[in-house]
């Protein structure tokens, strides 16, 4: 869901850049020497996860996993996803340069939102309930991202309204896939290494 350069209006680009810088700054303030390596390694993991393609009929979609990133990283997901989008733009040509702020905010803000909404759910004592919350975070993050992408387009001009509406419809299958994949991933992590969801807070406590 990368928006390319040239489509959005000036105010939307500037607004997106300001929000992205603010969110990244908040996320960076939550990091310190102890949490930096784990954040960097997990950020790399989400980058690699976005290279995973799921076949859908004749075509395929790649994973985004911003909901899961929010669950694991919290606010740190903001700078982590900003880094990932910067690297994708510069080395793969995905998205663009002037839209980097908008794209970062559209992907990272939902991640942080899901952290607040679903974080309690995934540490539930029942692994099936935890997986359900993982699924909700996966679908919710894509839903919120899609709404933000549609909003970025709609705010840039009325001629984008039909495209904004269709963006939403096109992404319903993505939402379902992200929900199921996130649920499965949370289920596995819950079974194998439940402390992963506490990684950042725990390390902070250990350091203090």
């Amino acid at each position: 869901m990368h928006i390319a350069d040239g489509a959005l209006s000036g105010p939307v680009l500037i607004g997106g850049a300001v929000l992205a810088v603010a969110g990244t700054a908040v996320g960076l303030r939550k990091l310190d020497m102890e949490t930096m390596p784990v954040t960097g390694v997990l950020s790399a993991t989400f980058f690699v996860a976005s290279l995973v393609h799921i076949p859908v009929g004749a075509t395929s979609v790649h994973l985004i996993m911003n909901g899961l990133a929010g669950l694991v990283l919290g606010w740190a997901a903001f700078p982590a996803l900003a880094v990932a989008l910067l690297l994708q733009a510069v080395f793969f040509g995905f998205g663009g340069l002037t839209v980097l702020g908008v794209n970062t905010f559209n992907i990272a803000a939902p991640a942080v939102l899901m952290h607040y909404l679903c974080r309690q759910g995934v540490v539930n004592a029942n692994p099936r309930v935890a997986a359900l919350w993982g699924g909700i975070s996966g679908a919710g993050a894509i839903l919120a991202t899609t709404v933000l992408v549609a909003l970025s387009l709609a705010l840039s001009g009325d001629q984008f309204l039909p495209a904004a509406r269709l963006t939403f419809l096109i992404h319903i299958p993505v939402m379902v896939i992200e929900a199921l994949v996130s649920a499965a991933a949370v289920f596995l992590v819950w079974r194998v290494r439940p402390e992963l969801f506490d990684s950042l807070t725990q390390l902070k406590r250990g350091a203090a």
Partner: peptide
């Protein structure tokens, strides 16, 4: 891989496993 529940669940476990291995690695890195 195909368009079915098995693929989606398996790839979900794959992502989960990647996260766990990355997490363990990051502790050694630190």
């Amino acid at each position: 891989p195909g368009t079915n529940m098995h693929t989606i669940r398996t790839l979900g476990y794959l992502v989960g496993m990647l996260l766990i291995r990355a997490f363990d690695r990051s502790e050694r890195v630190l």
